[in-house]
């Protein structure tokens, strides 16, 4: 829309304008125009209203892992199209292009403030972070590796839910990831689940909800049914903060809501409780 206006200018002017344009971002929360540099430095949290913008999996890993310690695992596990579902192949290609990732989940090992952990992080830019067979497999493998190495595991979810395009097989990933979580539970391996914007439906109703400690980012959309479905089904009017991190905290579904700049240190303190002493 803005581009039409720029198009009237000379090429040189246009380059200058584009550069200037890149120097600014608009906050999705308060709509304020912000310096991109300040915004990035503030971990994509609006310095004015505190709105937490989504991070890519790579950004989130950079936020949590100590520098140069992240070693990716299971990068070869990617989606197939077992149902021959309409437009799925195209969507997978778009997801790869949008996220620069082969799949909606990146997992591996790293240290977090010196504590060795397994880390699995979802990326919303890859088909809304949805969980198909490959994502389920990567979560299960990460958990099994944590069990085998007796390392704590941290998952960071951002997902619309189970991936519709793999039908029943996606649904079964809920059981698969919870099966792996059950083994961690029995073996006493710490599992911390971080819910980021948004964590919905089949992901919230499976592994993301069974962490020993559940942490959420401020303002994150966290809920079971899509807003539209929930609204249609309403007999009771939803409160203004319905399906936010704060709503889930208030209703006892989340242990802590932590601002992004404190997330790493909070995780460190939680992990230290389980592993230190």
């Amino acid at each position: 829309m803005q581009r039409g206006w720029f198009a009237r200018r000379s090429p040189a002017e246009r380059v200058a304008m584009d550069e200037m344009n890149d120097a600014w971002v608009k906050c999705n929360g308060c709509q304020q125009i912000l310096f991109a540099r300040d915004f990035e430095r503030n971990l994509k949290v609006c310095p004015r209203c505190g709105h937490h913008h989504r991070l890519s999996a790579r950004e989130r890993i950079a936020l949590l892992a100590d520098p140069d310690t992240f070693v990716e695992r299971d990068a070869e596990v990617v989606s197939a199209d077992p149902l021959g579902f309409p437009e799925y192949a195209d969507k997978l290609n778009k997801g790869r292009a949008n996220s620069g990732l082969p799949e909606a989940m990146v997992s591996g090992t790293c240290t977090l403030s010196g504590i060795p952990i397994v880390l699995a992080v979802a990326d919303f830019a890859f088909m809304g972070g949805s969980m198909g067979s490959a994502v389920g497999e990567k979560v299960a493998r990460a958990m099994e590796y944590a069990l085998e190495q007796r390392l704590p595991i941290v998952t960071c979810s951002t997902s619309g839910g189970a991936r519709m395009q793999e039908g029943l097989l996606s649904l079964m990933q809920m059981a698969k990831t919870c099966a792996a979580a059950a083994r961690l539970h029995e073996a006493g391996i710490p599992f911390v689940s971080v819910l980021t914007d948004p964590t919905m439906a089949g992901v919230l109703a499976s592994y993301a909800s069974v962490g020993d400690v559940v942490i959420a980012e401020p303002g994150a959309l966290i809920g079971f049914a899509g807003q539209r479905v929930a609204q249609q089904a309403q007999v009771v009017k939803p409160p203004p903060n319905f399906q936010t991190a704060e709503f889930q905290l208030e209703h006892g579904m989340v242990d802590i809501v932590v601002p992004r700049k404190e997330l790493k240190h909070t995780l460190y303190r939680v992990l230290r409780f389980f592993t230190g002493g």
Partner: peptide
């Protein structure tokens, strides 16, 4: 059930716990 009441009482957690 996708309603407000179910969300308030943790429908996702209830299902997830059953799976585990």
């Amino acid at each position: 059930d996708p309603g407000v009441e179910s969300e308030s009482r943790g429908i996702s957690e209830a299902i997830a716990r059953n799976l585990r």
